[in-house]
Simulated scan of single mutants.
Amino acid sequence: MHPALAPYVASAVAYDVDLGGAGVHRGLPSTTLTLVLPVGEPLEVGWSGLPGTRARRWSTVSGLHAHPAEIHHAGHQRGVQLALTPAAAPALLGVPSAALAGELLEVGDVAPALGDLPGRLQETPSERWLALVERALLERLSASGWGLGAVAPRAEVGHALARLTRGASVAAVATDVGFSRRHLASLVRAEVGVTPKQVQRLGRFEASRALVGRLPLAEVAGRCGFADQAHLTREWVALAGCPPTTWLREEFPFLQDIGPGPGEGLRP
């Protein structure tokens, strides 16, 4: 991605994955917003346990959330997925990050100027998907006037979010930025739509997801700030809907094909 997009796009992945047959895989929570642009057929996704949220969409935009999604597929998935920072919501989509928390929306409903992007992607060769998305985002950034370095409303809030994402305790972060815990909670919720504790949990979970399958679970727990392996497993059940061992068994073919990082499990 272009350097001008660095404050807003944490990662961008073009994927073309053969899953060997129809099924459902889990979209896991993370500390970034997600934009998924499927190619070939719509993405059928909804929040786990909430069948009323399930729909087929040619694009999916979601903010921070502390529960898994269910992504239904016919055995083959193609498209582009982006992990966006909270600053990307106002800069690229024209809405506060908090307005997207817990939502599953189409990009045209959020940012009408990007409404034709899913259709344009269908007509573009796969080797040019990322270039097309990059160009559309750069145009949107220029039009929004956010290309002048304004990437966060308050430096203290950005610093707090960064520390919480890395697993620091809410009390330590509040002391560090000089706010009471209540004031910090108000500012963080206004910025991203979830509480500081939820941001911290998401950061710890995200860190563990990068290590699960690569290290013993007890070591993952210790490295990522969980009290012990049992605590790690409880948090995985709460946030992913299953223990880490189950997730690895279910998602292994997908992980092999799409690689590590935000592509792990197509995260709305």
Rank of each mutant, 00 (worst) to 15 (best):
V95Y: 04
A83S: 14
L202G: 01
G40T: 12
L148S: 14
R181M: 11
P196A: 07
G49T: 09
L202P: 01
L50V: 15
G263W: 04
V17S: 13
V133A: 03
R56A: 15
S144L: 10
L37H: 05
P253C: 08
V151S: 14
W47L: 14
A101F: 05
A22R: 14
G259H: 10
D257C: 07
H25I: 05
V177Q: 07
L141D: 07
R209Q: 12
R140M: 10
G259R: 02
S11M: 03
W236D: 03
A240C: 06
R209N: 07
F205N: 08
R140P: 06
Q229N: 01
E134N: 11
S144C: 00
L84C: 11
R267P: 03
S62P: 01
L93C: 04
L37E: 00
Q198C: 09
T60G: 00
T246W: 09
R189T: 15
Y15S: 05
L187G: 01
E134S: 13
A99N: 02
H67R: 15
W129V: 09
R249K: 13
V157E: 13
L137P: 01
R182S: 15
T124H: 07
G108L: 10
E251D: 11
W236P: 00
V133E: 01
H2M: 06
L100Q: 05
E139H: 09
V194K: 06
L82G: 04
A69Q: 02
T245F: 00
G52D: 12
L121T: 11
H76G: 00
V13C: 10
A10N: 08
L232Y: 08
P196L: 07
A4T: 01
V133H: 06
G193R: 10
A4M: 13
R166L: 15
V107P: 03
L121I: 03
R189E: 15
T175Y: 05
L19Q: 06
A66D: 13
L266V: 01
K197Q: 14
L64W: 07
A89S: 07
V17K: 01
A111D: 02
R166H: 12
R163N: 01
S186Y: 04
L217W: 03
T175K: 15
R54V: 15
A111R: 05
